[in-house]
Amino acid sequence: MAVEKNVADVLAEKTLTRRRGLAFVLFWASHNVLHSLGIAMTALVIFVALLAPLLSPHDPTLQDSKIRLSPPAWAEEGSAEFPLGADNLGRDLLSRIFYGARVSLIVGVCAVLLAGLFGVILGLLSGYLEGRIETLIMGVADAQLAFPSVLLAIAIIAVLGPSFGNVLLVLTISGWVIFARLVRGTTLSVKQTDFILASRSVGAPDYRIIFRHVLPHVVTPVIAVANIQIGQMILAESALSFLGLGVQPPTPTWGGMISDGRVYIWQAPWLSIFPGMAIVFTVLGITYLGDWLRIVLDPKY
């Protein structure tokens, strides 16, 4: 037997033994744990955002000068009444983090819905109709990809002023491209199939072909990308808030809290530590969830 082994078998065996290492087992186990973790983490953030008024120990905008910059409960001078301490205006940090989840999630989800809507429509049109419309839409998309979205946001918000609506506007403008390119690619390949030819030959109008026959094929990849994009939009929103260009105070935003807190980095570092951890937690959860969704939705896996 051993004599008949060819080179490929030897190599395969070699790879297998290498892969049987303890580190590898741990690695793959953790990979699957991460998927469940992603679902749990995302669910927790949604839960907190929905129930913020019930879960928060205090009003997130209530100022109490007596507790200014008081440390978290486990520090020496901390009290259990303000579990994560209080900020420079004497507002409970934990309550503000809970409420901050609302802005992040709402902006993240709405921005992705809007960007996805425009991106999918423009992608379908440019992929299905081709010709000049495609050149125009994809030309704009390319030009925009070459241009950093922070700058675009700055330019637009400089003119329109910072507000919830303008944050959504900016994120939508910078976010539609990825969807349009994805949908256009899928549409181009679906268009070549026989069932499209068949429906065209029985006289189905273009809008019917696009919505009934092409659209269902682009839904799966769009959902997978949309999920990842929610995380990226939350990051973008927090950056805008950090620069003072996002949703304005007194509404608590994680980015805004970090921006307020960094002035007190010497006396009260927790003011910038915890909101940032909330962002990382949320985006990581969404990323793992997206990874899982992609595998579940993609038949090729």
Partner: peptide, 28 residues
């Protein structure tokens, strides 16, 4: 060294690095 500790480190850096707001990293 796919599956090794270094790989796990590289992958984690790849995932966490993209989930972290750069301004927060800077402050940390």
């Amino acid at each position: 060294r796919e599956g090794s500790i270094i790989d796990a480190l590289g992958l984690s850096l790849g995932v966490v690095g993209r989930a972290m707001p750069s301004f927060w990293l800077g402050i940390m």
